[in-house]
């Protein structure tokens, strides 16, 4: 099974079998955002609750493959307790790691600062285990699904705060 172990690292399978922060949060006060992967029908629902600009609690619902579910589980563990700014930085580091290959195969070309392949990801902790996904281009969207959904939730939260402030 050449290459499969690169994709399905033990830590990924562990998060898939025992997902962290699985469940729902009451809305409001929590924010609820859904993400879809049209390719495979995967769905992820991210619940985020903020207090004083910090991600106070996060829950993940939905269904999907081992890559999308473990990525969501690791993401939830990584952003809990982080400030909105720190969460945004994490999103951008993670997507940079995932974009290495997208660029090589003619992806959207964003995150140009990581154009060189195989830069070891800094500060991502166990999330670095998902780096093997870039060798399987079709699966990159599985890994990034929850992160794009998180980014949308953060955008909506901050837009909401701005709107509240204006009112």
């Amino acid at each position: 099974m050449s290459g499969l172990e690169d994709l399905y690292r033990e830590i990924i399978l562990d998060h898939y079998r025992s997902p962290r922060n699985r469940g729902e949060l009451p809305v409001p006060p929590a924010q609820r955002v859904e993400g879809f992967n049209p390719l495979c029908g995967d769905e992820v629902v991210v619940f985020l609750e903020f207090a004083d600009g910090v991600v106070k609690d996060v829950k993940i619902a939905g269904q999907g493959c081992s890559i999308s579910q473990s990525s969501a589980s690791m993401m939830s563990a990584a952003v809990k307790g982080k400030s909105i700014e720190e969460a945004r930085q994490l999103i951008s580091s993670f997507k940079a790691m995932m974009s290495i290959h997208e660029q090589a195969i003619g992806g959207d070309g964003s995150d140009g600062e990581r154009a060189e392949a195989n830069i070891p990801p800094d500060g991502l902790g166990e999330l670095a285990a998902l780096q093997g996904v870039v060798k399987f281009p079709v699966r990159i969207k599985c890994a990034t699904l929850s992160w794009n959904t998180l980014a949308q939730a953060l955008d909506e939260a901050t837009a909401g705060v701005a709107a509240d402030g204006a009112a």
């Binding site: 099974m1 499969l4 994709l7 399905y8 495979c40 995967d42 999907g64 493959c65 081992s66 890559i67 579910q69 399987f136 699966r139 599985c142």
Partner: peptide, 8 residues
């Protein structure tokens, strides 16, 4: 998951 199955 079918996606994982197809990969293997």
């Amino acid at each position: 998951h079918p996606h994982d199955l197809a990969q293997v």
